[in-house]
Structures are given as C-alpha cells and as structure tokens.
Design a binder for these strands. Structure first.
Lengths: 195, 195
DNA sequence: CTTCTATCTGAACGCCTGTTCAGATACGGT
DNA sequence: ACCGTATCTGAACAGGCGTTCAGATAGAAG
C-alpha cells in the first residue's frame, strides 16, 4: 500500500484540530461551519471527513484530549506530602497550565452544552477526577488541622472558579508577570482555606 | 387609533424575550433559531419582527436589561460605611441576585462573543461599573487597614469569579440552604482579603 | 515506470437559516 | 355596526448548513 507514512494524513489531521480549536474558541461551536474550518486548513469541506466522522466528534475529541492532557500533566508531578505545599503546587500548576491553553480551557467549559449526552458524561467524569485531586488536598489539610474549610466540595469549586478567572483577563506582557499573578492568587487561596 | 392598550403587544413582547432567554441559556445564541423562539411563544417566525429588528438586538436587549437591573438593584441598597460590612453585603447580594436569575447570568457572560462590537462595548461598560463598586469597597478597606490585598483589581476579579461559581452548581432544595451557602462563601471571601 | 491506494476535489443532497412582505385577522374607538 | 390599524400568518427569498460520494490526483512500493 502507498502513502502509509509521510502522507498528508499526519499533517492535515492536526491542522484541522488546531483550526477547529481556534475557531470554536473565538466564535463558539455552533457558530462555526465545517467550511470555515476547511478554509483555514486549505482544503474542501469534504476532506475533513477523512479525519472526523462528524462535527460533534471533532468537538468531543478536542475536549477529551485536553482533559486527558491536564490529568496526565498533573499526575506527572511529584506530589508533596504536606497539604499546604500540595495546595501551593496545585495553584501554580493550574494557573500555568490553563494560561498556556486558553483556547482549550475556554472550549472545555463553554461548549459542554453542545456535547451529546454520552460525550458530556465522559468529559464530566474527567473533570470530576481533576476536581477530586484538589478536594483530597483540602481534606487532608483539614484533618491535619492546617486548613479550615466548612465544606471541602464547595471550597474545591470556589478555588477552581477563582483560578479559572485568571484566563479571562491575563495577557502575557501585561502589567503583571506570571510569577506575580501566581503569588497573588496563592496568597488569596491560602488565606481563604487557612484557619 | 386602536389597540393602543391591552393589545397583544404587551403580552407577546415579554413572552418572546422570556422564551429567547431560556433557549439562549440552554442551547446558546447561535444554536437557537428564530423559528424555535416563535414556536415556544406560539406565533410564526415573522411575528417576532414586530418586537425586535433582528436576532442580534434580541440578545443585546436581554443582556443590557439584565445588567441594568443588576446595577439598579445594587444601587438601591443602603451601603454600609464600614468596608467589612459593605463587602459582606456585596457577597450576599451577588449570590442571591445571581441565583435568582441564572439564565440571565449565564447568557451575560457566555454570549459576549456573539455581540457586535458596539453592543459588546456597551455591555462591557455596564459590567465594569458593577466590578468597580466591588473594587472601591476593597480599596477603602485597604486604606482603613482592614483588608490586605496586593492588587485590588485582581482581587475584585477573583472574588467575582469565585462567587459566580455558585450558579454552576447550586440547586435550590439541595444539600445546603441559601443562608449556608452565603455563609460559606462569605467566610472564604473575608479570609482571602483580610490581613 | 507502472500500479495501487490514501487523499482530496467539486458537486450535489435535503434541510435549515434570518429576514421580508403582501394579505388575512381581530380588536379598540367611534 | 363599522372602521382603522396593530398584529399575525404563510409563503417566499437567497444563502448557508452538515454530510455524502463518484471521480481526479499524487506519491510511495514494486
């Protein structure tokens, strides 16, 4: 067989996903057409269907890949035993990872409603796994007497919501450096959960 | 002239906006058609154009009305002089107001990108006015030595992002009462900004 | 150099979109 | 009871949608 390697497939596939990522993030899934995506890649719309069975799967794959990357990157870290250090690490990791992938993050929680129920369930499970890793930090910190949170579930959601706010306003090269932003948010998170 | 009062106009207009509100919140602006909105109201699509010049204006009016209601409701409160009390009031007000209008809130920051540039600018200005009222609380609390925030602008955005998280998970009749939720969030906000 | 097939084109499919408008309708004012 | 008009219908418009597929194309394998 011909063209098994070095074929366009290795190039076109990623380019399609990259184009879709940018367009979905900027205009929203429903507002972007397959022809727009194809146009950005430089092919006809029909060619997209060599790489995705349909538009929905294209969105789903972007979201699933992102969540899996997020979980894998966090799991790769050496988790400190001390809850306070673990929380510090989480805050830094979350801010930096999400700022590097603002398009993915934007999509991952703006386009949930455009997933089919099955796809939604799968993405939601991945998100839950990530939230659980923060919640377990807060729990062990609570048992160790270092943290004081009335409700770890809510505290988890509150911390993540606060951190996610960063990506709506942070622009690299702006008033504050990444280190400063990280420090400011860490101060607030630490104080919010500490006794 | 006839039908100046008691006409259908007084009924159909609000019904259209209510239907659009629910549909936009559930499926997103781009994914909802004028025929769907009309169907929910019980009229033909053409009839909508007696009440809005186009689809874009329908979205814009929903967002502008919401922001104006928000600002008016907050301005109506007797503002406490003490920054700590003012912050307490803000947290309670924000949580309760936003939980009562989850559809509006959802739209107000999910559909910003579907506004024309002029409409976006106008909504953004209203949002800024609301954020400014929180920031001024944090500033006066900082000057009074009650609060300790390295950057009031970021603290403002962080607090609002955290509070907005409530509407993504809170369901009335759930595990926690509104008073409990308010108390938990107030605890976290207070600790986060306090010296 | 030919063969084979992965890849892409270009046209077509049926359906839906936002919007317009002439004409039907129904209600308040007289 | 009739008029006048605010309101709504129903059809039409031009264009875009996601998706399919027969056929053209091009690049590696033999």
């Amino acid at each position: 067989m011909a063209r098994t390697q070095g074929s366009h497939s290795d190039i076109t596939g990623p380019r399609i996903r990259k184009a879709a990522l940018g367009l979905f993030a900027r205009h929203g899934y429903a507002a972007v057409s397959m022809r727009q995506i194809a146009g950005e890649v430089g092919v006809q719309a029909g060619a997209l269907y060599n790489y995705t069975p349909d538009k929905q799967s294209l969105l789903f794959r972007l979201m699933r890949d992102h969540m899996q990357d997020l979980l894998a990157a966090y799991d790769d870290l050496d988790r400190p035993d001390d809850p306070q250090h673990a929380l510090r690490q989480f805050v830094g990791f979350h801010i930096r990872f999400h700022l590097q992938r603002s398009d993915e993050v934007f999509i991952a929680y703006m386009e949930l409603r455009n997933l089919t129920p099955e796809n939604f369930t799968e993405i939601e499970a991945l998100r839950r796994r990530y939230e659980d890793s923060l919640e377990s930090i807060l729990q062990s910190g609570g048992q160790a007497g270092q943290f004081s949170v009335t409700d770890t579930k809510i505290a988890t959601l509150a911390v993540i919501a606060m951190l996610n706010g960063v990506i709506t306003w942070y622009r690299s090269g702006g008033r504050l450096s990444l280190d400063e932003v990280e420090q400011i948010y860490w101060d607030m998170v630490r104080k919010a959960v500490t006794t």
